[in-house]
């Protein structure tokens, strides 16, 4: 048999494969530690002290959220502003807000939201993206969706729609009735409001550029 070169030696390639895989995996794990720290949820104290977190704490529902261009980063970021009433209150404690968010996140899973909508751009493409749904001008004071439900505020309009979606046919493609209760609807709306405050590196780009949601309601 001819002399074996290292390049045609299976053991060499087997070891290379193991090393490459191991190296990539270690790098991924290391990055995971860094990212996990950066995307852990903030606290009420962070919000009060104006500490910016990529994922703010659940009490962010006590504040007004806008989506504004950050000239340094070159894309829009959520900006947490002054206090704002949410279902008539702006003093949800960390426990209360946390419970609402918990209910809402659970609600988003048990109703299979992601199998029609996209959340953070992931999911199905049969219905609008919900990442910044809270900031959507259609739900704002001038918006057609708020007017349709006859409610005074954005959050009440959204909650009303979620409970009786087929009563408000917004499009030929309708949302089905999923048996969402009033409490669950409240949780879901706070989940949506919280999601709109997550720093998604400018996704979706130019959200509401034409209808003017970028600078808040």
């Amino acid at each position: 048999m001819a002399k074996r070169s290292v390049w045609s030696d299976n053991r060499f390639w087997q070891r290379s494969a193991a090393w490459v895989t191991g190296f990539a995996a270690v790098l991924l794990i290391w990055l995971t530690f860094d990212t996990s720290a950066q995307i852990s949820m903030g606290t009420d104290a962070d919000l009060k002290n104006g500490v910016t977190k990529r994922v703010p704490g659940p009490t962010v529902i006590n504040y007004k959220i806008t989506y504004e261009m950050d000239t340094k980063r070159g894309h829009e970021i959520p900006v947490i502003g002054e206090k704002e009433l949410f279902f008539g209150r702006d003093d949800y404690s960390e426990e209360e807000a946390g419970a609402l968010l918990h209910l809402g996140k659970l609600g988003s899973q048990v109703k299979n939201c992601m199998d029609c909508h996209t959340l953070l751009g992931n999911g199905a493409y049969y219905a609008p993206d919900l990442t910044k749904a809270w900031l959507d001008p259609a739900w704002g004071p001038e918006g057609s969706l708020q007017a349709m439900t006859g409610k005074e505020t954005k959050e009440e309009a959204m909650a009303e729609f979620l409970q009786h979606p087929s009563q408000y046919p917004t499009h030929e493609r309708m949302m089905p009735n999923l048996g969402i209760t009033a409490e669950e609807a409240k949780g879901l709306v706070s989940f949506l409001k919280h999601m709109s405050s997550i720093d998604t590196n400018g996704f979706p780009r130019n959200f509401g550029k034409i209808q003017g949601a970028v600078h808040g309601k």
């Binding site: 219905a127 609008p128 959507d136 780009r205 550029k209 034409i210 949601a213």
Partner: peptide
């Protein structure tokens, strides 16, 4: 929906 309308509910439809 994305480049012109900016991914809103109205833009989507």
């Amino acid at each position: 929906s994305r480049a012109q309308m900016g991914a809103t509910w109205a833009g989507y439809f």
